[in-house]
């Protein structure tokens, strides 16, 4: 058999290599039947040089074959989250997936206990005695909400269901510009506070930074939850969990909460949601 006649089968064997057996066998069988049908049709209709026509037909579709292969590989990764992971990442996932959620819950409890401690402190000062517990409670809620959102999103990923995303909204760029201007204002207040030593400037800068972060965080959360893309929800959920661990990191002299925070952050950043669908 001349090389040109073998080309369709040769190429199909190449680009289906490494794909699941059923996918590969179906494509090989379909191409074999198609090539055979074209040869029979060419013989019946008196078409000249059928081998060359078939080979050219294969060659023209090579780019589509490669993109199809890439989609099949992507589908394999979705179905088997650890298929591409190295041995080290597999070990890391095995170590963190069982302990990641309980550690994060412990940190949420730590935030609540810290809030109660500040609230009931005898020699506490205002407004810190009110603002502190509010912030700590919000951070505890951030961890719990992040875990729940992440768990649901990971389950969706494990089931292989990915809904189509919504188109990008026009207000995104405008919101980013406004946030940047507000942050610049806060930075200017901070600079004035440092240069003049004025406490009100520091306080105003702190409030501006905090309010901007809270508004941006809420906006990101709402946008991610309304988004059809599971990946967006997971990104925000992981950000919420990490932000919730920051107080424990700040209280590093207490050692145990800080170590738990490091373990949770390492678990979130080090492996990835698809490797921890059990959380």
């Amino acid at each position: 058999m001349p090389a040109m006649a073998r080309f369709p089968q040769w190429w199909t064997l190449r680009y289906t290599k490494g794909l699941p057996d059923d996918v590969r066998e179906r494509r090989l069988a379909e191409i074999a039947a198609d090539v055979d049908d074209q040869h029979r049709w060419a013989a019946a209709s008196g078409e000249a040089a059928p081998d060359r026509a078939v080979a050219w037909r294969t060659a023209r579709g090579m780019a589509s074959d490669l993109t199809w292969r890439r989609q099949q590989k992507a589908a394999m990764r979705t179905g088997d989250p650890l298929s591409d992971a190295s041995a080290g990442r597999r070990l890391w996932a095995a170590c963190t997936q069982a302990w990641f959620a309980p550690m994060a819950v412990l940190l949420a409890v730590f935030n609540v206990l810290a809030a109660i401690a500040v609230l009931t402190e005898d020699d506490g000062q205002m407004p810190g005695q009110v603002l502190g517990p509010i912030v700590m409670t919000l951070l505890a809620m951030s961890i719990v909400a992040g875990l729940l959102v992440r768990r649901r999103a990971a389950a969706t990923l494990a089931a292989g269901a990915t809904a189509p995303g919504r188109p990008r909204r026009r207000g995104t760029a405008f919101g980013a510009v406004v946030a940047l201007l507000v942050l610049l204002l806060a930075f200017a207040l901070l600079v004035v506070g440092v240069s003049t030593g004025g406490v009100p400037y520091f306080f105003a800068a702190l409030v501006t930074f905090g309010a901007t972060a809270a508004i941006a965080g809420c906006w990101m959360l709402v946008r991610a939850l309304r988004s059809g893309r599971v990946e967006h929800r997971i990104t925000v959920a992981e950000a919420m969990i990490i932000v919730g661990t920051l107080p424990a990191l700040g209280l590093f002299w207490m050692i145990v909460p800080a170590l738990l925070a490091v373990a949770v952050i390492a678990g979130v950043v080090g492996t990835g949601a698809r490797l921890r669908t059990s959380t």
Partner: peptide, 24 residues
């Protein structure tokens, strides 16, 4: 192959749809 041939006939194209494009 049958659908590739029908498309070619209906649209008066010179060539059959490429394998990769069609099956994808």
């Amino acid at each position: 192959f049958e659908i590739a041939r029908r498309i070619r006939d209906q649209e008066g194209a010179r060539r059959l749809t490429a394998h990769g494009t069609l099956y994808k």
